[in-house]
Design a protein around this nucleic acid. Structure first.
Length: 152
DNA sequence: GCCAACGTTGGC
DNA sequence: GCCAACGTTGGC
């Protein structure tokens, strides 16, 4: 069992949308490191912190679970999609994604400020300056601590 | 809206 | 393979 943090722009696809959809394909990832996490390291049942960036406040808004093996991200072939990649072909896809399922929307988010100033979360990747990676591995102790709502 | 950090591209 | 230029992300 592994733990992850998935970033989404709050205005783009918030946890409330995932709650409605129940399940979605995590498409549009166009970064090799993030893609490789999905292709090689994620397993069905892994738990994910659902993080909103560009929000007020930024932070973890809920939980999701990996619910499929990696498969091709169809948006790479769609010219009308924001994430269209002209270099990708059906024969040689470049981008992959997994499906995730809704687990929980927090009543109140665990804000980035709370995460930053809590010594129990020292070393958590999302705290690092300039950390732009949209899929991040999370240590079990950090995951559990956030889920327990920052209580000791 | 600004801008620092960082990933990607492309010329050499 | 280097690195400058450029585009994007994301916190503020």
């Amino acid at each position: 069992m592994k733990y992850w943090l998935l970033k989404s722009e709050g205005s783009c696809y918030p946890i409330s949308e995932l709650k409605k959809d129940k399940r979605t394909s995590w498409t549009g990832i166009r970064n090799y490191q993030a893609r490789n996490f999905m292709m090689k390291d994620m397993s069905i049942g892994d738990l994910c912190l659902f993080y909103h960036s560009n929000s007020k406040p930024n932070g973890v808004y809920g939980l999701a679970k990996v619910s499929s093996k990696p498969h091709t991200d169809e948006t790479q072939f769609n010219k009308k999609d924001d994430h269209y990649d002209p270099k990708a072909t059906k024969e040689k896809p470049i981008w992959y994604c997994v499906d995730i399922s809704f687990l929980e929307a927090f009543k109140s988010p665990v804000s980035l400020d709370q995460i930053k100033f809590n010594t129990n979360l020292d070393g958590m990747m999302v705290r690092a300056q300039g950390s732009r990676l949209s899929i991040q591995p999370v240590e079990e102790k950090h995951f559990k601590y956030v889920v327990e709502r920052m209580k000791p």
